[in-house]
Amino acid sequence: MVKKRLIPCLDVAGGRVVKGVRFESLRDVGDPVELAERYSELGADELVFLDIAASIEGRGPILELVERAAECLTVPFTAGGGVARLEDARALLRAGADKVAINRAAVDDPSLLARLADEFGSQAVVCAVDSRRGEVVTHGGRNGRGLGTVEWAREAVRRGAGELLVTSIDADGTRDGYDLELTGAIAAAVRVPVIASGGAGQASHLADAFAVGAEAALVASIVHERPERLRELKAELKEAGWAVRI
């Protein structure tokens, strides 16, 4: 049986890791590849690099970072943030990312997901879905899209997404737990793996997300503060009977 995954997410801007609380007030927390290697040693099953400043600063910093990560890391990683065209995805995958995350560009043009899946295989295509009160939002949560999140999740998978990264903007940064209603509804609606994101504060929150059908859980601020927390979370989940890789 495939193990439940813990995935530290590194929000990067200008080549550094930052983490926003409710997507605002960014704090600088370190070098992305150094941090990623540390997480890998501590048992990270995968990593995500999200370039949250891509559209402002161009794509140079993230490509350089992906090349370094591809050579240093021995666990898989996803790169995303500002991926607008097939060529952006190709550049990230050629640089060594295992998967690319597409968010706004897929909402703008869902056919992009099909083109990506045809070219790179759906296992390399992660559709990042940001949701506020059941509605798809883009632009870091600022723009409502008038589209139901579960409806969009189904559509994204039908088009070719091989995995969904579901972030509840309502729960993000709160540490009160993942949005279980949203996570569960989407996990039940699609047949690809769902990654729960936004709101992790303790091991039981991850367990709750797994219990409603998530295959993986994204963690950020709780592990950025103290990376050893990652190893503890996995130990606590194993203790609670979940199949995790120790």
């Binding site: 495939v2 995954r5 099953d45 091989g162 047949r191 690809v192 793996p193 295959e215």
Partner: peptide
């Protein structure tokens, strides 16, 4: 299988 792709550590 219920979830495809088969994605993760096994």
């Amino acid at each position: 299988a219920r979830r495809v792709p088969h994605m993760g550590w096994n």
